Simulated scan of single mutants.
Amino acid sequence: MNIHPLKFLITLIPIALLAGCGGGSDCYYNMDSYGSVSSARVFYPCGMENSSELHHVTTLSGGLSNTKENMYWLAGHLVENNDMVVFAISASSNTSVGNYERAHKSAVEMIESERNNPASPLYLRLDKLALMGYSMGGGAVLNAAHDLGSEVDAVVAMAPWEPSVFLGDVTADTLAIVGENDIVASPAYAEGAYGNLPDGINKAFMKLDNFGHLQWVGNTGSSTNTVAAKQMISAWVDYNLNGSGSALNSLLNPPSAVKVNENNL
């Protein structure tokens, strides 16, 4: 397990009664508020509690005015295609990068608590940790990765809004991905983040053809650019957390909807 033990005692966080299946291979349960997280839905591969297999885990958030529901499309995709556990979160305050940064850090504490909770289907079954966020949440995961250091193994920042320029000591392998038509979170933010990351990690900056800011919210479409976004995020996880050679090939030879692909892989 690459999530380092917390330096203080975390009490077990109560799980809400609602649980179910997402219609495919993903099951879920809801969690109450904790720290800077107002609510969370935990997506996981159905039946993992009956297996000793370890699963990678990620936080996931939207951005300004968003809630966890806006990112369920990606949570389900990651469970079904990457066999991941996903903590989709709503921030207690969703109006700034700083608030989202605190929410992701709270979610990391929630993950550690569930890993050590004998009543949780995740008990002792979590492996490497990723952080994923969109817009303000995208800037937040970059900043959180800077603060959390080696606790974090991979980062996906989607259309990141105003991340810190102080990213030179980030140790997590990081993908910054944005749409070329984004007039809210300019592609310059993502490219600037890529440039500020150290050369000693796997990192990439990708720009999607004909893709705007709001296409990341509830992205359930089947257009070539929305499919490419999901493919590249899945490949990033698979390569950097599992060492998949085929995923590396996908990242180095992305679909045509990826118009810019700068990387250090």
Rank of each mutant, 00 (worst) to 15 (best):
V165R: 02
L265M: 12
G76C: 03
Y239M: 13
V97C: 04
V57T: 10
Y123M: 03
P254W: 14
M84P: 05
W236R: 01
G63D: 03
A157S: 05
P160S: 07
E151S: 12
Y134M: 11
E101N: 10
A235D: 08
C27Y: 15
G98D: 14
P45F: 13
S39L: 03
L265F: 15
F87W: 06
P163N: 06
L60T: 12
S246Y: 08
V170Y: 00
Y28R: 01
L252H: 01
F8L: 02
N50T: 03
N66S: 12
A19W: 01
I111F: 13
N219C: 13
L252Q: 14
L54M: 10
S96I: 01
M48P: 03
M84D: 00
S38V: 15
E191N: 15
N225T: 15
S186D: 14
P45D: 11
V141Y: 05
M110A: 06
S61I: 02
H213K: 05
L148F: 11
H55V: 00
M110C: 08
D127M: 04
G139L: 04
S222D: 14
N30C: 06
L9F: 13
Y34Q: 07
R115P: 01
V57P: 10
D238T: 13
V237P: 06
S250E: 14
S52F: 13
F87E: 05
G139E: 11
A88Y: 06
T171S: 14
H213T: 12
S61P: 04
E114Q: 15
W216D: 04
V86H: 13
L252M: 12
L18V: 11
G221W: 00
A140C: 08
H213I: 05
A119P: 05
L248V: 01
I233C: 12
I3W: 01
N249G: 04
R125E: 05
L265W: 15
P163Y: 02
A157T: 00
V237C: 05
S36G: 03
T95I: 12
N117R: 05
L12G: 06
D26M: 10
S106R: 09
W161P: 03
N81Q: 12
M110K: 11
I3M: 08
E53F: 06
L251A: 07
C27I: 02
L64T: 14
I10W: 03
R102M: 12
G138N: 04
P5R: 09
G22C: 15
R41H: 00
M206H: 09
N263G: 08
M1L: 09
P163V: 07
Y72N: 13
S52N: 09
V237W: 15
S120W: 12
G179Y: 12
Y29I: 04
S234W: 08
S244Y: 09
S222W: 13
F166W: 11
P255T: 00
N116W: 03
G76L: 12
F43V: 05
S250I: 08
A188S: 14
I10Y: 02
P5G: 06
V184R: 04
T58G: 12
A40H: 05
P121V: 09
H77A: 06
P45T: 04
A235F: 02
D209S: 14
K259P: 00
A157L: 11
V237T: 10
L252N: 08
V155Q: 00
N219I: 02
N99F: 10
R125A: 02
N249Q: 10
E101S: 07
S244G: 00
M1I: 13
S234H: 03
L74F: 11
M158K: 03
A40D: 03
S223R: 08
A185Q: 10
N94A: 15
V258P: 03
N99P: 00
E49W: 03
